[in-house]
Design a protein around this nucleic acid. Structure first.
Lengths: 222, 222, 222, 222
DNA sequence: AATGAATGAGACTTCATTCAT
DNA sequence: GATGAATGAAGTCTCATTCAT
């Protein structure tokens, strides 16, 4: 898996490509990413990726052993980048509530600005649920919650202490529950939203922000 | 086509299978349902459904025109049944908050007792998001929210009036947001949960109930 | 085969249907005829005929043993009717040349007024060429040339004698050659014509009439 | 797609097969051609072509996307070759009448020496009449009439001027009408002829030559 | 490092037809 | 005389993947 993560630095100018190999790899990933967002993961064949990348099928297999492999590599990128940005958003905030709020806000931004990516993640979630080795999943999930699960527990504790969070919350449970719900809501909207947004206008963003509002109400100390 | 529409009578109690045709249809649906739950929708081929149903491939196509057709028929069943039970749960409750609480509780029950069905719905959601005609989706979704979307708006209004819900809530938005989030959370847990529940024990239920608790905190008037 | 020919009288009012059986038979033939003209013979399945006729597949097989059977029955009708009208056209004419001219004119009329039928015959011709028993074909062809092939020979002889036809013609060959060419030309135009007539306007009729003109020039004594 | 376009070089002499790919392609085409001539186009399945070519089904689809694709490729070959030989035959002749005569003679030769090919074209004509895009047909037809349709018009004009053709002819119509009739006659004989030639001996050729004779009588100035 | 070529393994459907009631 | 139901038998096509060069 570590081989699937290629550097996606903060500067748009990535370090000069280390090797031809790496450049080719990125080419394939980019082509695949675009196709996945447009046609869905299941809607894209290896042959199409190969075409879009401008290489030959046999060459593809020099870089990846699977379409799945490609999917995982892209997911890893998304996680990595998300973790980084999420962490930064939280670090800037003061109270625990503010941190949580910042995290959720960040997810709303993602839904607004990169819905295709979120949709991709939604498909990944459901589709791969059966094929994943839990380890592979967990190790990736761990990246999005900096400091691991423990961090979330202490965040709630911190919030209860600093008076920003409701004392009834369960430090070991709440944050996981919230994260799961928010991701679930976000991805569901991304998946289905594009289908109904014509009829509901800009509702998708608004629905998600309303979701956040309710949850923050639920967390905030009275 | 007419194949794909399941009997949705006005009385919830279907008369015992009227005809041979109906019985066969149910046989296929049951076989397919079992397979979908076990191997995932994508993991099942038409040929496997055919085998499991103990018929010949050509017979299958006398009843359904597609694997998709079968999937939709099952989804319709799930929706129908869910709508019915959800409605009954809500009717028994008093205040708007109690109604909402009953609805969410009902979803928790579903997750607990029929996780495979929920997982199925999760896969359906994400996988079919791109292939659906929004109409087909909407017409089904409409069944789950008795009285249509309007009901949700008035539910919030009712709750604000009877003092059980927070006055800051937005009648036109909140309930949709909550439903979406809860469904998203539920299905996400069902999808991923089966993979990690060995490691976390009974957590899935607990996580979901914690989600509900937070959301109800967020809705309840202080 | 004689069972395939149902009466198509000159009066639109056919004798009162002799039996239910005959009425059903005609229903199937009519439905099939319409479909063949619209979609081509190969483009129509037995199931479609069955639907269009408003009966059940199994009923169909009570009347015909085949789609082919239906095709032959329709062809027989077309032949019969064509023979009758052709004969009448020729009888009205005086010289042998006038008779031939009348026959060709009659074919031009057919192309103009019933192109779909001609197209049908064209498809039949080519498609069935390999499956026919020559006998079946010959016995049908015999109907269109009243008096059989011998009639054509004597027609040419008659024309040479009455001075209306070129003396160089070969009585045993010419008329068959002409008939074949004219039918070939007519059916080819009917088949391909609909495809190009948008670009060439009303050319199909004109092309066919020009064909006739040249052939009559070729037959007429100088 | 690019598969379906046969090499149509400017030189009639194709260089010996350049690549393996080209050789394989030709192998499939040859196998298919043989089968089509023997069993008719409709009577041959893709699987049979595959077998006859000694390859695997999946390999077949690397070269052609369809059975239809194969048919078109063969038709293109036939057209190409026919156009070439027809042109050469006409070039050798002097007067316009001689040119036309040479062209028709060439078609008689084709019927005599390659009846199976003509039969194939007959089936193609009728069978595909409904499925063709007119463009595809026209672009092929254009090849057989060197210089395009315009050439035919000027041929008639030339003949009227050089005194070899009847002045009553219509330059814009006659030649098209004649070509259509002759092709129609030729293909009809090829289709039906094989069925009756046992009974009529060498009649097919003779019938066709008689057709030509009559038509040339009709064109020739008196 | 790249690729041309081949292919195994299936999946999905269609359709004509039979037969018991 | 009508038909509901079932099905045998093909046929078409896709796709991921391998392997020799």
């Amino acid at each position: 898996m570590s081989n699937s993560t290629t550097q996606v630095g903060e500067s748009s100018e990535r370090k000069p490509y280390r090797s031809h190999r790496e450049r080719q790899r990125r080419r394939i990933l980019d082509a695949a990413g675009r196709l996945f967002e447009e046609h869905g993961i299941e809607g894209v064949t290896a042959a199409e990726i190969v075409n879009a990348a401008g290489i030959r099928a046999s060459t593809f297999y020099e870089y990846f052993s699977n379409k799945d492999d490609v999917v995982w590599a892209i997911v890893a990128d998304v996680f990595e980048e998300g973790a980084e940005r999420g962490k930064r958003a939280m670090d800037a905030a003061g109270t625990a509530l503010a941190k949580i709020s910042a995290l959720l806000e960040f997810m709303a931004d993602d839904l607004t600005h990169r819905p295709a990516k979120v949709r991709f993640m939604a498909e990944f979630d459901a589709m791969y649920a059966r094929q994943w080795s839990p380890e592979r999943l967990l190790s990736l999930e761990a990246q999005v919650s900096p400091g691991g699960f423990g961090y979330f527990s202490s965040l709630i504790r911190e919030g209860i202490e600093d008076g920003s969070l409701r004392p009834e919350l369960d430090p070991d449970l709440t944050m996981h529950a919230v994260i799961n719900a928010v991701i679930g809501a976000q991805r569901r909207l991304a998946s289905l939203g594009s289908r109904v947004e014509l009829e509901y206008g800009h509702r998708i963003d608004r629905l998600f922000r309303e979701t956040i509002r309710v949850i923050l109400f639920g967390l905030r100390a009275t």
